[in-house]
């Protein structure tokens, strides 16, 4: 049986994590169908049909789907569930909110936030904030799975031409009313979801020196992080703290500058795809987890780094 992927979108475009979720879905079964539920979301359905891994798109429209209310979405999926062995969605706030509602309606024990597909019924998932990993096997006939988007590559986004089928909307739930959404627009991406994070530690020596980091962050469209030592020293506010007691981040690129690498800090970033460490002390523990280590004085290295970045004609953002 096929896998049903629930697409996340804003009625116009797919949200980027949908592409990661498609990859995960395709690892469970080749036959990936994707559903887009919304209002005036034809464009999103079209984008979905262009993903080569998607074999069929189901498109459901109704006014009450405009704002992605889980109580309205769940019955649509439940109605279609008979045709599918798996229902998959990304484990961000959209999927976290929605999937358990579907799973309970289907009397299925959900598997949340998987980082690896071991087989069609067995998955790897982090527990205890990533301090341990559990391999779990679902005994349910129908499996509801949410996937950690940063653990899967995004799929190819063009070249496909899956058929788009319309499906009927369900009745409105009625007792939940969407009021408003305030998207927090910041010049900088959120620390928790940024693709690139650049962090400074005690080695920055002062809050002023963080502007060296800011200018590189601007260039790379990166979020700014910090070690607890830098926060304790008052260089930067504690909402930037990465680590066990701060935020746990899993960006594609993590650049640690002047951070020695206390375990608390490592706990917060060691899942990053690529780690770069810039530190004067060649023995600093941070080098033991870094893919690329540069033993250098950060006050020389950072301006050079910016200069080199400026030389590049393209930068992925």
């Amino acid at each position: 049986m096929a896998v049903l992927l629930i697409a996340e979108h804003n009625n116009k475009e797919l949200r980027p994590f949908t592409l990661n979720a498609v990859t995960a879905a395709s690892q469970i079964d080749n036959e990936v169908h994707a559903i887009v539920i919304g209002q005036n979301c034809t464009e999103a359905a079209k984008s979905l049909s262009e993903l080569p891994l998607v074999k069929k798109v189901i498109h459901v429209e109704a006014v009450h789907y405009e704002n992605f209310v889980a109580e309205n979405f769940a019955p649509v999926i439940v109605k279609l569930a008979d045709n599918y062995s798996h229902i998959v969605c990304s484990a961000n706030t959209f999927g976290k909110n929605l999937m358990p509602r579907i799973a309970a309606a289907l009397d299925t024990s959900q598997i949340s936030d998987i980082t690896k597909v071991v087989s069609s019924d067995t998955f790897l998932r982090p527990i205890y904030a990533g301090n341990a990993f559990a391999t779990v096997k679902s005994k349910d006939a129908k499996k509801c799975v949410t996937i950690r988007p940063t653990s899967f590559d995004s799929c190819e986004s063009s070249g496909g031409s899956a058929p788009i089928e319309k499906a009927e909307a369900c009745e409105e739930f009625g007792r939940t009313k969407f009021i408003r959404r305030e998207e927090i627009k910041s010049d900088r991406p959120e620390l928790g979801t940024a693709r690139v994070v650049i962090s400074g530690g005690r080695g920055m020596q002062s809050g002023d020196n963080f502007k060296l980091i800011t200018s590189i962050a601007d260039k790379l469209n990166a979020a700014i992080g910090a070690s607890r030592a830098a926060v304790d020293a008052g260089y930067i506010s504690n909402d930037h703290q990465v680590g066990q007691t701060g935020k746990v981040v899993v960006p594609d690129l993590y650049i640690a500058v002047g951070i020695s690498g206390a375990i608390q800090h490592l706990a917060g970033m060691k899942e990053s795809k690529i780690i770069v460490a810039i530190n004067k002390d060649g023995e600093a523990p941070i080098f033991s987890v870094a893919d690329y280590g540069l033993e250098a004085d950060l006050f020389e290295a950072l301006p050079q780094f910016l200069e080199e970045l400026n030389k590049l004609n393209t930068i992925q953002k």
């Binding site: 299925t108 024990s109 598997i111 067995t122 982090p126 527990i127 990533g130 301090n131 341990a132 990993f133 559990a134 391999t135 779990v136 096997k137 679902s138 005994k139 349910d140 060691k270 899942e271 780690i275 080098f287 033991s288 987890v289 870094a290 893919d291 690329y292 280590g293």
Partner: peptide, 16 residues
């Protein structure tokens, strides 16, 4: 409904 096959420590990252 879910069988926990094993629990393990996160993989240690290798130095690059």
């Amino acid at each position: 409904r879910i069988e926990q096959i094993k629990v393990e420590e996160p993989p240690k990252r290798k130095a690059g």
